[in-house]
Design a protein around this nucleic acid. Structure first.
Lengths: 134, 134
DNA sequence: ATTTGACTTAAAGTGGGCTTTAAGGCTTAC
DNA sequence: GTAAGCCTTAAAGCCCACTTTAAGTCAAAT
């Protein structure tokens, strides 16, 4: 399949697929007349990448997860991948917990701001400075 | 006060304060020999901006909140500001709720991924595609 | 023969929120 | 008079995950 067909099947843009290849996220396919030719296995690759992205992993982290396997044959043997997934997944869950905590603080702060009764910006700023000192 | 003194008092870098001025977030101060000279009121401005940032507002949104008031005198009368704060705060709370929901989905997905028992990448990809169809 | 459509590349652009750089000016202390 | 230490500007750089652009190649259809 050409890159355009892979793009349509995967829902990604061809430019994104080329970018993933350039940055070592997916293997370099064979070529016919200079054009990339793929088989179905790269679609599995792309599905796993999208899945990892939807979990909040960056492309750098995804390279750590799967990227050692630019050879698709090795990539398909998931045993060594599984260990890294567990480690990074656990770390990412903690990161997401921390993120949620920060967002909860923002929400609480906003809820207080909605009830703000300061008469001017100076009073408002003074109260905010007071909070920071707590 | 010079921009350096404001920077030390506010904890911001001078470059950030210049950037805020350039982008219409804070008023243009008077000058002596081409150098900016501030009075204390800009510190209130900066405190409110940092506060809004800590609530998750972008600089664009902060301009909507306070930015009409490049004249500090007007800015200090918070009455017209309050209405905009309530509207934007409510909207932002909903945005943050949506964000938390997305993060919770990520966490649940990661928890499932940690228990993954697929024998190869193809099986994994097939299961993930199945999820998308749910 | 030429048009259409899909592909190729390297390089530059996007957005957000700044920071850094390069080149210079002005004041104060020695 | 010269060095230190503050300030000035416009423009470029940074991070991330791509997209867009410009200029070109190639095969099939008309």
């Amino acid at each position: 399949m050409t890159i355009g067909q892979i793009a349509r099947k995967s829902g990604l843009r061809a430019s994104a697929i080329r970018f993933y290849e350039r940055t070592g996220l997916i293997p370099k396919p064979s070529r016919v007349n200079g054009q990339r030719r793929y088989d179905d296995r790269v679609l599995d690759c792309l599905v796993l990448i999208e899945f990892a992205k939807s979990c909040g992993f960056t492309l750098d982290e995804i390279r750590q997860l799967f990227g050692g396997f630019t050879d698709l044959g090795e990539f398909r043997n998931r045993t060594p991948v599984l260990g890294r997934v567990r480690g990074l997944a656990e770390r990412k869950i903690h990161e997401l917990d921390a993120l949620i905590s920060r967002i909860e603080v923002m929400k609480a702060t906003l809820a207080r701001a909605e009830r703000c009764r300061c008469v001017d910006a100076e009073e408002c700023a003074r109260r905010i400075r007071g909070l920071a000192e707590c």
